[in-house]
Design a binder for these strands. Structure first.
Lengths: 213, 213
DNA sequence: TAGATTGTTAATCGATTAACAATC
DNA sequence: TAGATTGTTAATCGATTAACAATC
């Protein structure tokens, strides 16, 4: 019996789902056909219980005595994550980080398409990133009004991030993928995913000292 | 009475500590002198209880009826995180992402110094990243033997990451800051911090659909 | 069939929040 | 002093793990 769908899915579960997806991609590429929760859990350092518990939020994907069919589970998780849908994205801030993200081809393969790129720096205007023309940020609002954009990738300096986010929000963006190291102020209807690059280095620093001093 | 120090600090607490550090930096720059756990918590969307609970792992930093002195708490947290120490880092993989990280000047300001950079691509050898000469990856092992390196920044493709990590480990690296989307196999003595860029986009995708469908 | 392994319920563990005495 | 706010203990909440009947 599947769970009634009113349930709120914990963020921890969603993060692990993304990890399962990644590992299953590798297994499938490697030609593995079936796998048990025990084996799969072992590869990722989690318990079989947790894996089965996580999946049970969404349905039944395995078979007693057999385990999971890799390709089927992979497909189902991609559906759960919404990766079979098409997403349009724009990039605001075409520095090294912006370029790195825009040119990560796996995203395009998974239905995330870059449709616009913006920067305030004069010298970048008219150049391209990942085949997309870089426009001045002053054009951002007009662009959003004329094009359907699902996700804004924020790779501007922290000092400009909120200001840009406000434009995105006013023009009805659905999600913001934020790389600036600050908490954005957004209404509840906008989904923000924050990549904590610098926080992560601080964590590493802490654990180095915890360990060696 | 401070806690006896045998305690293992939960990873969640360390992550929040990094966030407190970041917010306190901003407050200090903004000239704020004192702040209560209620106010600080509100800025970050956590409860005052949690903030005080987190700090109590490390000591007493406030004063009843007053709150916390911003500059003092900021300094103490930087000490806890080990940010007043000097760290030497090398970069392996000088693509856009590697460049972005190497040139993020705040790291240098906080005691993280880039001392070497490596790439397999012929055309990059001899060029520079953030004032450091790019060397062929074949020189990596020799470099590690001749220089004290604390942290290796892994920004190579996933397919090469484990192979490079193995060299770092064999030559006694202390920590690895891993940007490749795969779980590295490392001995317990090596600290790995993983930045889950693609997982984060998948999370965003999930939450967009949870919300809008 | 017998063995393996699922999905799910119950038990345990850990993390967050509430409450409050201590005290600036 | 009186009011505010800490540090910490206790209560609550949520997440992880264990156990096991169902079943392939």
């Amino acid at each position: 019996m599947r769970k009634a769908d009113g349930k709120q899915i914990p963020q921890r579960v969603v993060s692990r789902l993304a990890m399962y997806y990644r590992v299953l991609s590798q297994l499938e590429k490697g030609g593995v056909e079936r796998i048990s929760s025990r084996e799969l859990g072992e590869m990722m350092g989690i318990t079989p219980s947790q894996l089965r518990q996580d999946l049970s939020y969404f349905g039944e994907f395995g078979q007693q005595g057999y385990g999971y069919k890799v390709s089927y589970l992979h497909l189902e998780i991609s559906r759960i994550l919404g990766l079979e849908k098409q997403h349009s994205m724009i990039l605001i801030g075409v520095g090294n980080l912006g370029r790195a993200i825009a040119s990560y081809t796996n995203f395009r393969n998974r239905g995330f398409e870059l449709v616009g790129a913006f920067d305030v720096r004069e010298e970048l205007i008219g150049k391209k990133v990942d085949d997309i023309d870089i426009q001045p940020t002053t054009e951002l609002r007009a662009f959003l009004r004329q094009n359907k954009v699902d996700i804004g990738i924020l790779t501007v300096p922290a000092s400009q991030a909120q200001q840009v986010a406000d434009i995105l929000i006013e023009e009805g963006i659905k999600g913001i993928w934020n790389f600036a190291p600050l908490k954005l102020n957004v209404p509840e209807s906008v989904i923000v995913e924050h990549v904590h690059i610098s926080d992560s280095l601080y964590s590493l620093s802490f654990r180095l000292h915890e360990h060696f001093n």
